[in-house]
Design a binder for these strands. Structure first.
Lengths: 156, 156
DNA sequence: GGACAGCGACAACCTGGTTGTCTATCATGA
DNA sequence: TCATGATAGACAACCAGGTTGTCGCTGTCC
């Protein structure tokens, strides 16, 4: 067994892919096709208070241009609305639409299902242990920042 | 705690990123800058017997054009050599160069070091347990195929 | 010998990023 | 009050890595 260390990295990647691919496929089956993980990150940033393209970019550690592009497709697909900010004419105020909240809620429930399926495979205690180990290794905050930009590709 | 299931996915991603970013940075520090995980996958495919661009594409489940592009940069940077196949004039026979094997060996040792650091943090038994759990969840073969194409971005 | 398949090259395009430049707007301090 | 500086967003050019499609050459097989 050479490459033992690298295999660990691949296992982690593979786990992530398994979940995200399944979620994207399932989301498409439920009527939200062309919804990508990137979009989720952007919407969560908006909900968390980043109500302009620049702010989303900062929150996601990404250039404002990149954020603006993502937001443009989100607006185009009706997940996010954008209008002039009455208080500051430079800004375009962003808001997640009802449809936007819908897709997020669907996504959450899909991920819950996937996790439940893993619990069946592994046992609840063991899965909790795995999560705890990961938190020890990468920290709890790792869950939030900088994940966008690493999740760019199409499933299958 | 909503988003529990999604957090699991993010933990896995974060673990992968932590390892791969660190490895890429360390590799650059050792003189192999602009070497990306994608390149590693392509080189391993060549070593495994895929000695033409089309074959690499098949092995990596990627179009032959995509494989040809990657191989072009690998050849350009001296990690892979390409020459006419005396037995078949259509093909360009690929070979990993000495420098190519060097960078792979460095990469392996870096990943071993990273894994050892994680063992210190978590304990050897617990890390082995984590790996075993992941193998249970995603299967052993998951380590190999289709990982290219998910590892496209720059660290930091 | 002819039909078909595979290889590599080329071109056009997509997505998700990047940097750089520009204008409009706001905020601040002399 | 007004000049200066910072910020928002738009636009353009570019990059990496991927896609599809077309094409010509080469090899294989009937």
């Amino acid at each position: 067994m050479p490459r033992h260390g690298a295999d660990l990295a691949l296992l982690l990647l593979s786990g992530f892919r398994t979940l995200v691919d399944a979620a994207t496929v399932e989301l498409a089956a439920r009527g939200y096709d062309d919804f990508r993980p990137t979009h989720e990150f952007a919407m969560r940033a908006i909900i968390a208070g980043a109500d302009s393209a620049s702010a989303v970019g900062r929150r996601l550690s990404v250039s404002k241009q990149a954020a603006a592009k993502t937001i443009a497709v989100l607006v185009d697909r009706g997940y996010v609305s954008s209008g002039p900010d009455p208080a500051d004419a430079r800004r375009n105020r962003l808001q997640v639409t009802t449809r936007g909240f819908d897709v997020l809620r669907e996504g959450e429930s899909i991920f819950e299902d996937l996790r439940a399926r893993w619990e069946e495979k592994l046992g609840a205690a063991e899965l909790a242990r795995l999560e705890a180990s990961l938190v020890t290794l990468v920290g709890d905050g790792a869950v939030d920042v900088g994940a966008a930009g690493w999740v760019a590709h199409d499933p299958i």
